[in-house]
């Protein structure tokens, strides 16, 4: 798996009670790992800091709640890692 996946998995393990070995590419952050909204806030802050990005959690949540995107697209680990890679690439493309 990618270095981004490993970094995010480390961050989740550090900011929650989830053991690192339980976090796989197919883990759903909320349904499988049981991360609650407050822990998720800490995790997003740590991801924002680690990658120098602003994870658009609110936009993602709105898309999922409106039925415009499946939750798996953002909240399954391998897809989350992919989204983070895209955000990092977008920031680099902007020269940020």
């Amino acid at each position: 798996m990618s270095a981004v996946f490993d970094r995010i998995a480390d961050i989740i393990a550090e900011n929650s009670d989830v053991p690192r070995e339980k976090i796989t590419p197919d883990s759903h952050v909320i349904d499988d790992l049981g991360i609650d909204s407050l822990d998720f806030l800490d995790i997003v802050f740590a991801i924002d800091k680690a990658f120098g990005i602003k994870v658009p959690v609110e936009q993602w949540t709105q898309e999922v709640n409106a039925g415009n995107a499946p939750a798996e697209q953002y909240f399954v680990m391998k897809n989350l890692a992919q989204r983070i890679e895209e955000l990092v690439a977008a920031r680099q493309a902007q020269g940020g």
Binding site: L41, V44, F45, D48, K49, K54, V55, P56, V57, E58, Q59
Partner: peptide
């Protein structure tokens, strides 16, 4: 310190 999506630190 940080202004995130739906939160600030």
């Amino acid at each position: 310190v940080h202004e995130g999506s739906g939160y600030a630190v």
